[in-house]
Amino acid sequence: MMDGAGHLTLFGWPSAMANADSGRFCAIGVPSDHGNGVSRGAAQAPAAVRRAASHLASPRHQGVDLGDLAGCGAQDHDTVLVRLAALVEQVVERGLRPLLIGGDHSLTYAPALALQRHGDIGVVWFDAHTDFSPWSAGQGHSHKQVLRRIEALSGVARVLQIGYRGLTIGDERYLGETSTVVTTAQARALDAADVLRLMPPELPWYLSIDIDVIDPFHAPGTSAPVPDGLEPRWLGKVVGAMAGRRKIIGADVVEVNPRLDVGGITSAIAAELLRTIADAPGER
């Protein structure tokens, strides 16, 4: 099922689930960019982010790293998503929390699908785009409409989109009754406590971080950059607060594209965010 046995693991974590304590994070690389119509390269991110993470201090809480989902390059996108959802299900059954390294953002549909089957969840969507393009059955699944599909899942009780910005055809600040959109301009005026108030504490939350939420001059290695984004420091503080003050049932960092990166600075930010999530005491 998994690739990369014996290779570099995230933060040097062990690669077997057997002895992992319940509640620990379980890293899974998803080297797939099937859902990105703009550019190839996100499939290279799991390896690049693990390399960048090797330069960081280990987080306080040790997790496990199962390596990469095998065979992504040889399978259709639907198959990859089905297999990823099944793997996330196994991870959850073992009492662990998925920590995915994308891959493009379309993959987040798989963990969201699996996790909401266990009860209502909230989803935090850090992204420069709302990913709410129209979708109809039979259309290929992509990173442009993935949040529209996730928001429609019966177990997704809340969506908090943070980072929408730029010039768009329509006003995308309203994504439905269960959703809240915080634009980048609004987010800059908020601190972590303000953001937490938008996340009901009784709800378990999944954090999905599209690296393009960050200003592209800080994080250029991504396929659909939008200028004037958030600063990594702001994002780190907010993610740290979420991980420490809310029940986080899983997370991902997606859309890092090493092919477009400059000196690995985007992978480094992604690694730091993963470390922030894993390092937080958090409710498990």
């Binding site: 929408y164 910005r165 730029g166 010039l167 768009t168 055809i169 329509g170 006003d171 995308e172 600040r173 634009t183 980048t184 301009a185 004037d228």
Partner: peptide
Amino acid sequence: YAYLLDLDTHRPRGWFDAASGERI
């Protein structure tokens, strides 16, 4: 950033500017 026309008025739609919350 596609230049599109309004369906009814046939005038340019402009763009929604997320930062200011207005259509430009």
